[in-house]
């Protein structure tokens, strides 16, 4: 058996290249990824790329109130004369932080519970999945309302409220995939080969969940940002003067329709961010579906 060359590095390189090629040929994924990258860079570099970084705080400049978009103030100014473009870019930081913290806790928790319920079945499954069903029955906004009422409306508590319910979706996703994979021969093979339960869960089942998890998580980023903005809009989230997109839409809505830019432009920012993550998620799904079929 010598027909295969001993050195396989060119072939492995072409494998990575194939994936990149397929990704680059998928306009949805590329546009989504571009938006996401630009948004993340803008958020990180906010203090250096915004024209008026000092407008993030409680700055008041009454001579510049309600100015429409211009070369000086790209997105116009708000009711106390602060630059809306600067505050929108800084608002992205809060949105991304929210998504990062919520998904950073919800995804691992949901994944572990889903793996356990799906693999072990029996009582473990009944307990985990019924708790999941109960948590799913609570509307997130009601939960946030309750948390804000009991504790206080701020960033940490809105994160807490969203994360406390968000893991359920990941639990159900991973549970259904695990159930399906558990019956495959390679899991039985691993069992007969003496592999531990930990090995089977982490090394055999989890890698088969990664593509679904990546798609779900990137779609979720958009949704979490949207829910966070809704909470802020209702006054249950981040409090002024911290710049947050939802809060800005809410405070600007008082001056509609004359000073439309004060709520519409931050609203557009929410739209673009959510759209970017959704496009990326859809693009990843197409990409992984192709791989599954292959």
């Amino acid at each position: 058996m010598t027909e295969i060359p001993a050195d396989n590095s060119p072939r492995r390189l072409s494998n990575a290249y194939q994936n990149w090629y397929r990704f680059s040929r998928n306009p949805t994924a590329v546009i989504g990824a571009a938006i996401v990258v630009i948004v993340i860079l803008a958020a990180i570099l906010a203090p250096w790329i915004t024209p008026y970084p000092e407008h993030v705080g409680a700055v008041v400049n009454f001579r510049a109130r309600h100015l429409p978009p211009s070369a000086e103030y790209w997105f116009g100014t708000d009711n106390v004369g602060r630059d809306i473009f600067t505050r929108t870019i800084f608002g992205l930081r809060i949105s991304l932080l929210l998504a990062l913290v919520v998904l950073g806790t919800a995804v691992p928790v949901g994944t572990v519970l889903g793996l356990l319920a799906g693999y072990f079945g029996g009582w473990v499954e009944i307990v985990i999945m019924r708790i999941t069903d109960i948590a799913l029955a609570i509307p997130p906004l009601v939960m946030a309302l309750a948390v804000a009422a009991v504790l206080s409306p701020d960033l940490i508590n809105s994160m807490l409220a969203i994360a406390a319910l968000w893991w359920t979706w990941h639990t159900r996703l991973i549970y259904s995939i695990t159930r399906q994979i558990r019956t495959q021969e390679f899991i039985e093979a691993a069992e007969t080969l003496g592999a531990s339960k930990f090995h089977i869960l982490i090394r055999e089942i989890l890698p088969n969940c990664v593509s679904a998890l990546a798609v779900k998580t990137s779609l979720d980023c958009g949704f979490v940002i949207l829910v966070g903005a809704s909470l802020s809009f209702l006054g249950l989230g981040i409090q002024p003067p911290t710049p947050d997109l939802g809060t800005m839409v809410a405070s600007g809505s008082a001056f509609l329709p004359d000073s439309w830019w004060e709520s519409v432009l931050p609203g557009c920012a929410i739209l673009v961010v959510a759209l970017g993550f959704n496009l990326l998620g859809d693009g990843l799904r197409d990409l992984f579906d192709v791989q599954e079929v292959r």
């Binding site: 021969e185 390679f186 039985e188 093979a189 007969t192 090394r203 055999e204 890698p207 088969n208």
Partner: peptide, 14 residues
């Protein structure tokens, strides 16, 4: 044991 279908007895991600 060697299983019937090597397509499913090997983990596709390993």
């Amino acid at each position: 044991m060697v299983f019937q279908n090597p397509g499913s007895s090997l983990n596709p991600r390993r």
